[in-house]
Structures are given as structure tokens and as C-alpha cells.
Design a protein around this nucleic acid. Structure first.
Lengths: 152, 152
DNA sequence: TTTATTATTGAAAATGATTTTCATTATCAT
DNA sequence: ATGATAATGAAAATCATTTTCAATAATAAA
């Protein structure tokens, strides 16, 4: 979908918009979960059996550099990936959630219902930090740690 | 330092306060950096050469469960650890910083100068989430992603 | 204090995610 | 088409972390 759009984007980075990359991006657009490299590999493999796990890793690395994808870490010993904010229009709701992680049982709760105030403040902080550290901020993640209902 | 204090704490978790554990905690108290398991192993090894890397991993896992230590991830493929807020009195300034991570070169900037407003809001959010999800929040971390001055 | 019980330890092996290497293939500019 | 170069997949290598297991240390019981 929107091949031209993607092609341009890749060209801008001196890269080619190839079939494996296309399949991987399609997969990310379709899914609304936090996928591991292996998840993506297995899923893409169904429609494109030639894909290699190596390519998935390489593509994700590139997509991360391009700001298209974000890497998440829940302390599982492997990374998970999700599209950056504003990339997949349809499933916007999935993005930009924050995480509650139980330090005892490792249970993860996502939440997306931010207060107006929260959103406003985050924007302010971003603006402030951008200026102070001469940093172009494209995304943020908040992790809260503690004990879940069961482990309390 | 404060052996009795630690001993009690460990006992409360049905665990023993052993020498390796003591050395590891001392190391964490002394250091003011984000240490990897290997960093700790090498450092502790100097004064306690019998220590094994396995024990470091196991101890860090336990300390995390006990809420004494927090695991950080900067996408390097390995975890880093720091004492939780309020644990090491002397080096309090080190803790509770947030992170700016460059998605291109992986440079990491820590910042600790939070605005009053920021601190207040985070507390409010924590209170709200605690109630809503019946979760006892003990810590939080914020990661901002984007491009550093060089990579912009 | 001695003894019994159980948690903890270290070494080595195993695991599992991610990277590197390298020869082959696909894509793009000409 | 053709040549130059980026991208690919398979296999091997790497590196952090876990598991296994026999030996040891710390605690509780006698």
C-alpha cells in the first residue's frame, strides 16, 4: 500500500524499497500488537516463504533509524517493535500507550487513556528538552514499575 | 554497611544475606553509573575474586524483585542496573533521571532537572494508575526518542 | 556446639536473540 | 541491456543470560 510513498522515503535514505521490506512493513501496518522479530518472520513467511530472519532484523534496524518503527523492551530478553506514532493511520489507537510492569511476575499492562493534562505536559516537556539538548524528539515511552494486584 | 538492615530485608523475603550479595550491593551503593551485570562482576571480582557471573545475574534478579534495583534498557542488547530511588542515600542525585536516546547513533543523554510541574504531574498520574489498575507503583522511567544534535 | 536442613554458590553447558560473513541475487542508473 | 551497488539468505559466530548440578555456606534444630 502506498508503494510510491514508501519508495520515496527509502530513496531519501539511500535505500531501496524491496519486496522483503514491503512485506515486513505491511505486516507491521496490519498488526496491532508488539511484535518480536521472530513473530514478524513467522507471519511474513506465510505469504513470502523466502524471507530470512536476518533480513527481518536488518529491516527493523533500518526502520528504527528511519523513525518508522520503535523498539520496546519489557525485560523479556528480546525486543518488540511497533510502528511509530502517526505511521499507520488506521490503527492509531494502538500506538502511544504506556506500560505498567510488575517487577515480581513481569505482567505488563498497557494503558492508552491519558488525561488531557498528561498529554499537554508531555508536549511541554518535549519542547523544553528539545531546546535544552538540541534534540529532535519524535517519540517517548513511559514505564511504570511496581507490583500488580496479585503480587501486592 | 548497615548489615542488619539488609539482613532483615532479605529475611523478610525468605532469603539469606550472603557475602556475594553483600559485595554486590556495596558495589551498587558505591557506583553512580548504570552498570551491566558484567561491569558489576568485574568490579566485585577485584575484592572478592570468588564471585561468579551467574551469582551476579541471580542477585540482580532477586534485588529487582525486592524493589532494590531497577533494570534499564537502552537498546544495547544487554541490561543495565541502578539502585531504586531512595536506596542509596548519598548518591541520590544519580537516581531518577530520564533518558533521551538518539535513534540514529544511539547516544544517550540523561537528565535530572525536572520541573516542579513535571514532578507533580507524575505523582498524580501514578496515583490515578495505582487506583485504576490496582497496582502499587514504585518507580517509573521515561524515555524520549529522536535525533541528537549531530544526527539531525 | 554439633548436626540437619535448606538456600546459595560457581563452573560448565545450554539456550536464545541478535550479528556477521560471504557468496548470490535483485534493483537502479546509465 | 549493462554495470555498479545494495540487499538478501544461509550458516556460522557472538554475546548476554539461564539452566544444571554437585559442592558449599548459612540457618535452625537438637
Amino acid at each position: 500500500m502506498q508503494c510510491q510513498h514508501w519508495k520515496k522515503k527509502f530513496m531519501g535514505w539511500g535505500c531501496r524499497f524491496t519486496q522483503p521490506r514491503q512485506f515486513i512493513i505491511d505486516m507491521l501496518l496490519k498488526s496491532n500488537k508488539h511484535l518480536t522479530a521472530e513473530d514478524i518472520y513467522i507471519e511474513v513467511h506465510k505469504s513470502y516463504p523466502n524471507i530470512g530472519l536476518t533480513t527481518v532484523y536488518r529491516t527493523l534496524e533500518l526502520l528504527e533509524k528511519m523513525g518508522i518503527v520503535h523498539r520496546l523492551d519489557f525485560g523479556e530478553g528480546k525486543s518488540r517493535y511497533e510502528l511509530s506514532d502517526g505511521i499507520g493511520i488506521e490503527n492509531k489507537t494502538v500506538h502511544h500507550h504506556h506500560h505498567l510492569i510488575c517487577t515480581n511476575c513481569r505482567k505488563i499492562i498497557n494503558y492508552t487513556d491519558f488525561s488531557e493534562q498528561e498529554i499537554k505536559l508531555m508536549k511541554e516537556i518535549e519542547a523544553e528538552l528539545s531546546k535544552k539538548y538540541n534534540f529532535k524528539i519524535t517519540a517517548h515511552q513511559i514505564y511504570f514499575y511496581g507490583l500488580c494486584a496479585k503480587c501486592k
